[in-house]
């Protein structure tokens, strides 16, 4: 047994890559549907969306690209389905250039195909503007100082949904789909905190620890933390009748859970092997 564990400690890293690859691939090919239970931070986001007053306008900002698409894209689908089902007008903007393509994909599927909503009335896509947090700062002064036209070239003054929305202070809820900088932290610093606007975010797993202090301090209303939380949110909107089909995140959860389990096993084995090796070295 000791010898086996010692050998495990010296195993070629390519073997580990191969095992991880297999445990991710197999559940994707043969799913078995592990249950997903919502955590408090995800439920907080759901409750915050539920608390938006009827007809309240929501700003959804896309701050991710293809590299983090598997994590954030399912959140974008889930949150927009929830918002559109509740009948909230949604204003979409992008702080990342690739965010525009992500937004277009989600809008096409959710707003156009699933809900058949009217552009300019039920939702609008303002598109990407360079400037990072300066854009957030800009819309606290006025949307028109940053966006003169939307992605379809329409002047903001001619878009029905933008009537009564001069600055971001006229927005009832902000949701940021964030994969880094600029993202959740900048929204807290430059819009949500100074103007006291309800704000929440869906982030990549890697960002969670950076953003969590803002949730803890009440500066954010919960957080959708990575793909597992996206699956939880998909579950919540199905459970409360906002949508009827599980999304991608739920479908991927089997692979995610099994991979976690295997990694935990590797960590235990690796540490045991390291411990035995150190003991042996001390002996001699």
């Amino acid at each position: 047994m000791y010898n086996f564990l010692e050998k495990m400690g010296n195993v070629d890293r390519r073997v580990i890559f191969l095992i991880i690859g297999m445990v991710v691939l197999l559940p994707l090919l043969f799913p078995f549907g592990l249950p997903v239970k919502a955590t408090k931070t995800t439920i907080d986001v759901y409750d915050a969306v539920e608390a938006i007053p009827d007809g309240g306008k929501v700003l959804v900002s896309f701050e991710y690209g293809p590299s983090t698409k598997p994590e954030i894209h399912p959140m974008a689908f889930a949150i927009l389905r929830h918002l559109f089902h509740k009948g909230h007008p949604v204003i979409i903007m992008c702080l990342w250039p690739d965010g525009l393509f992500m937004a277009q994909e989600v809008i096409h599927q959710v707003a156009e195909l699933e809900y058949d909503l009217k552009y300019g009335v039920d939702y609008v896509n303002l598109g990407y503007r360079p400037g990072n947090e300066a854009i957030i700062k800009g819309i606290t002064r006025g949307f028109e100082s940053v966006y003169t036209i939307d992605t379809q070239g329409l002047p903001l003054s001619s878009i029905p949904i933008m009537r009564g929305v001069e600055t971001v202070a006229d927005i009832d809820f902000i949701f940021s789909l964030s994969a880094g900088y600029p993202g959740s932290v900048e929204w807290v610093q430059y819009a949500a905190d100074p103007l006291q606007i309800p704000f929440s975010s869906g982030t990549t797993s890697i960002q969670v620890n950076e953003v969590l202090p803002y949730v803890q301090a009440g500066q954010m209303q919960g957080i959708i933390a990575g793909m597992p939380a996206a699956a939880e949110y998909e579950g919540l909107i199905i459970e409360h009748g906002h949508f009827d089909m599980p999304g991608d995140a739920t479908r991927f959860m089997d692979a995610q859970s099994i991979a976690h389990l295997v990694i935990v096993l590797f960590i235990i084995l690796g540490n045991t092997a390291y411990y035995i090796k150190r003991k042996k070295e001390q002996k001699y």
Binding site: I20, G21, V24, L25, L28, L29, S67, T68, K69, P70, E71, T204, S205, I206, V208, N209, A225, G226, M227, P228, D248, F252, A255, Q256, A259, H260, I263
Partner: peptide
Amino acid sequence: ASFGFAVMGRISLLIGRFNDLI
């Protein structure tokens, strides 16, 4: 905790790539 989240994120990205390859 961060490391745990990172592993989770990396697996999610790997799942995304595998899904496309499938």
